[in-house]
C-alpha cells in the first residue's frame, strides 16, 4: 500500500475512534462512577498525540475539543483551543523527552486532563461565582478515570500507528 493511502486509512480510523469516544462520552449512565465519568475525548487526544507529530496531534486535539464543545454547548473553540495546545504539547514532550510507552500515555493523559478540568472550573464556576466545595472531590477521581480510559485506547492507537499503517 502506498504511503499516502496508508496515511489516509489511519486518519479515517482515528476519526472513527474519536467519534466512538464522543458517543461514550455522552452515553447516559454507561461507565459513570458516582458523579464522575472519564473524559474519553481528552484520553483519545493524548494517546493519539503520543504516536503522532506535533502538527497532526494538535489538529486531532482541536477536533476532539470542538466535539467536546459542540456536544455540551460550551463556548465553541474554548476546548478546541485548549485540546490543540494539549495535543501538540504531548506530542512535543514524547518526541523530545519521553518514550512511546503505556505508562507514558497514562501519565500524559492525566497531565492533559488537569488543565481541562481547571480551565472549566475557572471559566464556568469561579468567574460566575458558582464555587461549590465538591470540585476537589471530583478532580482526583476524574483524573484517575480519564487516565484509565487511555488504557483501552493505547493498544488500538498503537496498532493503527505502528503495526497496520506505519509511515516509515
Amino acid at each position: 500500500m502506498r504511503l499516502q493511502s496508508r496515511r489516509r486509512l489511519k486518519w479515517l480510523c482515528y476519526a472513527l475512534l474519536i467519534l466512538l469516544c464522543c458517543l461514550l462520552q455522552t452515553m447516559p449512565r454507561l461507565l459513570t462512577f458516582g458523579q464522575v465519568k472519564p473524559i474519553w475525548l481528552i484520553a483519545a487526544c493524548c494517546v493519539i498525540a503520543v504516536f503522532e507529530q506535533p502538527l497532526p496531534a494538535g489538529i486531532c486535539g482541536m477536533c476532539c475539543g470542538l466535539l467536546y464543545d459542540m456536544a455540551w454547548g460550551s463556548l465553541l473553540g474554548f476546548n478546541g483551543g485548549l485540546f490543540l495546545l494539549i495535543g501538540a504539547g504531548v506530542s512535543l514532550f514524547v518526541t523530545y523527552l519521553l518514550r512511546q510507552r503505556l505508562t507514558v500515555a497514562l501519565l500524559v493523559t492525566a497531565c492533559g486532563t488537569l488543565p481541562v478540568l481547571l480551565a472549566g472550573y475557572l471559566f464556568y464556576n469561579v468567574m460566575w461565582g458558582y464555587t461549590g466545595g465538591s470540585f476537589w472531590l471530583l478532580l482526583i477521581p476524574n483524573l484517575l478515570l480519564t487516565a484509565l480510559a487511555a488504557l483501552p485506547l493505547y493498544p488500538i492507537v498503537r496498532l493503527l500507528a505502528v503495526r497496520w499503517f506505519p509511515e516509515r
Binding site: I59, L75, L76, G77, G81
Partner: peptide, 21 residues
Amino acid sequence: RQARILAVLFLLMLGLMLLDA
C-alpha cells in the same frame, strides 16, 4: 512551519470563541 500553523489554528479557535460569544 508546524509551529506557525498551530499558532494560526489557535488564533482561529480564539476567533471562533469570540464569534460564538
